[in-house]
Amino acid sequence: MFTGIFKDTSVRVLIVFMISLCVISSFILPDWMQNNFMYGLSRGLAILGLMLLWRTNLVSFGHALYYGFGAYAVALCQKYFGITDILLRFTIAVVAAGLLGFCLGFILRKYREIFFAMLSLAFSMVLYGLLAKAEFLGSTDGMSISPSTLFGLELTRQYLFFLITFFVICAAVSIQAYLRSTLGHLTTAIQDNEIRVEFLGFSVQKAIHIKYVISACLAGGAGGLMAASLGQVDPDSMVNWNVSGELVFITIMSGWGNILAPFIGAIIFEFIRTYAFEWAPQAWAAIVGGTLLAIIFFFPGGIWSIIEKVFNYGKKKDVK
């Protein structure tokens, strides 16, 4: 699956982009931007997960379920076991969300279109209800998360950022490897014609289930990293339906052409939000919404389609 993965153009571009982001943000850009990159990259993982589903024509309106589950897994492991190691945090978030996704996948893999979207929304709101009611989980106040460590040493924000970038590269490269495998190629095939795929001898439900679990893992990891980089989790900003909506929105805004697209989209989203908040504290939501609308109107293929046009990037890949 991973053979020749580093010869893949997308992977190369991704690695170069991530490393240059690290270098530029450490040396040239002001410190605060690193926060936005950190949030953008973390959230980008969840967007990558949604993009995977989208390739099979499945839109989940409940991905905040895994996003929040990962974040709360990190928070609870700190509260009850004192775990603050970033490697453990990331692993716990991914595994916890993956397990939940595996269980729910048995139900969800049978549904398509609006039924899939609404059912996933329902599941996420169940978790939201539980978290908002349970006082020992902090109810709507949530919980604060102490700064991350690595092998017992406290991490500075700078190193946390590097590590997040590292996790993101690993995750994105694995996803590219998955997309290049037979299972990955099935995704678009399922989108085109499910019955044909079945006749080719593949189980559509199984393929979707696997994809769903991968997507859940990514969203969980995103939540875990977000929790670690923000230092706070609460149901309203991690699990509520509008968080799911936001994730879907960024997915559409980013476009689905490439594994790099979600990260660029998510970073741009963070910057739009930061500046909107600064310029118009009373009308920031309208600015964010307006920008997203404009992108959808004028660039239906998302931000990635702009990049493709500018760099002529996608065409080259097609020729190959």
């Binding site: 002001p30 926060n35 106040d141 949530g142 309203d236 900003s237 930061t274 908040f277």
Partner: peptide, 17 residues
């Protein structure tokens, strides 16, 4: 927008502004 969002904004206030 909730505590998590406010924490993000607080960091912006300190480090950006």
């Amino acid at each position: 927008g909730g505590g998590t969002k406010q924490v993000g904004l607080f960091r912006d206030f300190v480090e950006k502004q």
